[in-house]
Nucleic acid binder design. Structure first.
Ligand SMILES: [Zn+2]
Ligand SMILES: [Zn+2]
Ligand SMILES: [Zn+2]
Ligand SMILES: [Zn+2]
Lengths: 131, 131
DNA sequence: GCAATTGATGTAATAACATTACATTCATAT
DNA sequence: ATATGAATGTAATGTTATTACATCAATTGC
């Protein structure tokens, strides 16, 4: 999936997210898109659902916010597990992939016959710049 | 912290959570405590804040719910990082601790001078019983 | 062409989750 | 007894997310 074949609403939402320097809530995305004709939360949530599906956007569960993928040109899903650091001071989000952690979690799930769906790894704290 | 020195509201909330077979939202805890005199969400949230602080309860960020710690007699905070599997079918939650993952995340944070606060690891999927 | 299907959109209403603000009560330490 | 800090009661509000229903657009099969 590339950014080319997005619908208008999906493209607008992705554009807002990828030009933001931090994660945004669905409602702040909505506010930024009022001038583009957005009127209701559902317009944002529907676009986000698709962007998440395409791997162009990530949802940060611990702060109820959304962030553009750090490498949307690749298929982020293909990287396997994605983990994040989230600075609680400046909002900066860093995305990373760790195969050791991934294997470890896979092993734990396999040992217990737990069928893994989506996995969340989020570290909240303070980034180097804000320390 | 043991369960002895809890206030009335904290004790009631902990009791509801520890007798539940799955995680509960703050509002469903509230509903279960109406007969005990609870009237407002804040009564639940305040008790939960303390129970989280004491390490008697965990918050599941990805489902906006709370669960009693699997080993409240020990100090769960002392175990370091806590990770969860969450069955999306039956709601069953399993808590586990993995030092390899913990060290790996610590290393990542240290390398980037990221000061770690709270870390969330949650695997949503299907448990063995529901497969 | 034209119905049928599917995916996307617009809009309103509502549900679910969480916090702010302020007054009061309780425990306990001086 | 009184000052302090912790806990509580209550109402109002703020924030996040979904349901329901109507409409529109692109695609497919005939
Ligand atoms: Zn990504
Ligand atoms: Zn920062
Ligand atoms: Zn625990
Ligand atoms: Zn299950």
């Amino acid at each position: 999936m590339t950014t080319q074949q997005l619908t208008r609403n999906q493209g607008l939402v992705f554009d807002v997210l990828s030009h933001s320097d931090g994660p945004l809530s669905a409602y702040s995305i909505l506010d930024k898109l009022r001038d583009s004709g957005f009127r209701a939360p559902l317009q944002v949530y529907r676009a986000l659902d698709k962007l998440l599906e395409f791997g162009l956007v990530h949802r940060l569960e611990s702060i109820n916010a959304f962030v553009a993928c750090a490498h949307p040109e690749e298929d982020c899903h293909a990287h396997g597990l994605t983990a994040f650091t989230i600075c609680e001071t400046c909002g900066k989000v860093t995305e990373f992939h760790d195969h050791v952690i991934e294997d470890r979690l896979k092993g734990f799930a396999r040992d217990r016959n737990f069928k893994t769906g989506k996995t969340t790894i989020e570290i909240r704290g303070t980034c180097a710049g804000c320390a």
